[in-house]
Amino acid sequence: MLQIESLAKSFSGFQAVGDASLSVPRGQVVAVIGPNGAGKSTLFNLITGHIKPDAGRIVFKGREITALPPHQVSRLGVARSFQLVNIFPRLTVFENVQVAVLARLKQSGRLFTPARRLVVQETFEVLHKLGLKTSSDRICSSLSYGDQKVLEIAISLGSSPELLLLDEPTAGMSPEETRTIVQLIKQLSQREGLSILLTEHDMDLVFDVAQRIMVMHQGRTIAEGHPAEVRRDRAVQNAYLGETG
């Protein structure tokens, strides 16, 4: 589904990502782990086109998407959710998702049809899937933090992606809320057949949901493989797992 080959990016001399490689097979959950500052967020930004790489290739479904602008990457079927809550705060829950659905169906430019009559079905489907249907009329900045993170994922699903990038989906969440997210990730991957690439600090979660793990350290890929292999990897233990205990 997604292949990344020796991607590199520096910011004014500081190498944020250097020689990162990764592959996400169709329908699998892949986790990128690594200490803070390992370059995980930069890697995500490179994949979605928010930042252009200095070197390397990104291939999605056999097509090179390196350095495409974000809206085109999105239209090809890559959606992301953000580490911090990144929603449209003054729109309703429904409208938040609707914006994404409209963009996917290339309806964003329609000038005279009332928006509330368009793509209602598709939008409710997503809301229903994530249990947000009852709050669809609420202004989303009035939702709880956990619900906002769920909405964050809902917006991404509104693009009906084949590959979903989740940047620390459970950051700042209560254990209860975290369990909901874990359920959600499993559901999306197993029932919907979605490929998911995520970063996460919660190791229990990572080893629970991921079929493959890639470990980043100082911008480089130092290991990639099945969770069990990664757990055994000496370099990983030294670089990362050892440090955090």
Partner: peptide, 11 residues
């Protein structure tokens, strides 16, 4: 409200 997010949903 959120240009970055709009871009990433394909606008």
């Amino acid at each position: 409200d959120n240009p970055v997010r709009s871009q990433s949903v394909g606008v």
